[in-house]
Design a protein around this nucleic acid. Sequence first.
DNA 1: CATATTTTCTTGTATTTTGATAATTTTAGT
DNA 2: ACTAAAATTATCAAAATACAAGAAAATATG
Lengths: 257, 257
Amino acid sequence: MSGFTRYNKILNLFSEQRSSWTVLEISDELKTPSSTIYRIVRELVLAEFLESAAGAYFRLGPAFIKFNRIINLSDPLVRAGQPFLKKLANENPIESVNVLARLYGNKVMCVADYKTPFFKNNTSYQKGKLMPLIYGATSRAIIMKIVGKSLEDLLKQETFYDDNDKDTFFKNLKNDNKKGYCKTEGQVDKGLIGFAVPINNKKLGIEASLSSIFNSSDFLPEHEPIIYANLTSYSLLIERYINQIFDDIQNYHQISS
Amino acid sequence: MSGFTRYNKILNLFSEQRSSWTVLEISDELKTPSSTIYRIVRELVLAEFLESAAGAYFRLGPAFIKFNRIINLSDPLVRAGQPFLKKLANENPIESVNVLARLYGNKVMCVADYKTPFFKNNTSYQKGKLMPLIYGATSRAIIMKIVGKSLEDLLKQETFYDDNDKDTFFKNLKNDNKKGYCKTEGQVDKGLIGFAVPINNKKLGIEASLSSIFNSSDFLPEHEPIIYANLTSYSLLIERYINQIFDDIQNYHQISS
DNA sequence: CATATTTTCTTGTATTTTGATAATTTTAGT
DNA sequence: ACTAAAATTATCAAAATACAAGAAAATATG
């Protein structure tokens, strides 16, 4: 264990399920002497990436809240997408959650969302939560634009039930790509139906999706064209806005240098 | 530059004002050879703490969004305070922003907030933004519970206009402590008036405050007792809830070990 | 106050990091 | 598609530092 790994391994122990650890527990878990962990934890506390809680426990520190804010203010995808989510929601024919998601390693992560006030259910796609790559429209719309070796690498970790299952998956992906959008029902959350379109920007390396998620019980077939039209037009708006933000950043760097 | 510092120094270059850097710029700024920076940046990208943007630029990576979510779900202060902010807001006599803030090094940081739908202005206290320690009710309510050497250390970096200014500051702090709450007008944001009460938990090392912020123009003197009563009762509720959360965590660790 | 627990300190040794340079890959402009 | 420039990675010996293990100190607990 060397370099950043040594810090990252410790930080990644802190999860939703287990949010506080003692030095001894970390030491056990990582099979590393406690004197070493004490030193590393001290460094992380100094940088506010960890902080000490009661009873020799440590938890994630406020530095993450700080950096998260900077991302919200500066990430081109979040900046470009955030303002449109509410508008999209309001143009949908029924109550919805609207999600902007992106690739994160070989998972998918929501980075911005807007739920209409009276939408009762909750989607599993939540800001910062890692979601499966191959289930749900939100995820599939992202990978449907990825091809060749990149796609292969991405799917390397995924397991399919059998070859037939795998074939169906790829066939669906190709089909969705032709249609331009993806629709799934109950793959991630029972009782919810999702529609998603891809959002891409090769220059900025953005591989993302915009999706609207509804209660299956609210959804009627005649809604589909409207939903699709909204998603498509907003995805184009967002892509255009991303470019504009990119230009702004370029100009900023040119002026200040 | 050694240990975690070497990574932290780079990450801390990324700010609201300047959210993307090239390796060469970082190398210049930190007066460190670019070969070294390339190596470190690569490590941070691998861990998703940074990600590459267009034109050789790098920006903060999605790992921060992930960890931020875990904090929101698990930090005792955020968990305990978040659910009460809306209730507090609804019991206030006029439109308001309601803020839960805590110490972050020698600054103050908002960790949760709720703004009533028709509040027009915006407070500078925003989730993740570092704010001054000695201005504004939100900040002062935190330090008014800190005494002795801790307070001295905390204020070491602060500069006062003159000795008289300093004396007034300490006198006000002592006064507020006696009253049990803090009230300031226009210290941080012109046109806003803030009220704050401290939130503490020695066991968990929590030094925080709960505050309600209003438009000065909406505020009438007769509102003050209600505002004060609301803040006080909710701060007690939050403190009690923090203890309960603490017990839950204790139990969790006992059961799973 | 005594005891147990947590945390820091110490030290020689093993490992990692560093930085100058070279090699390679990627990008951007004809 | 070609080429020049820019960006990134690889190499390697010297320098820096992280490491492990136990001792010591500080802190929490009853």
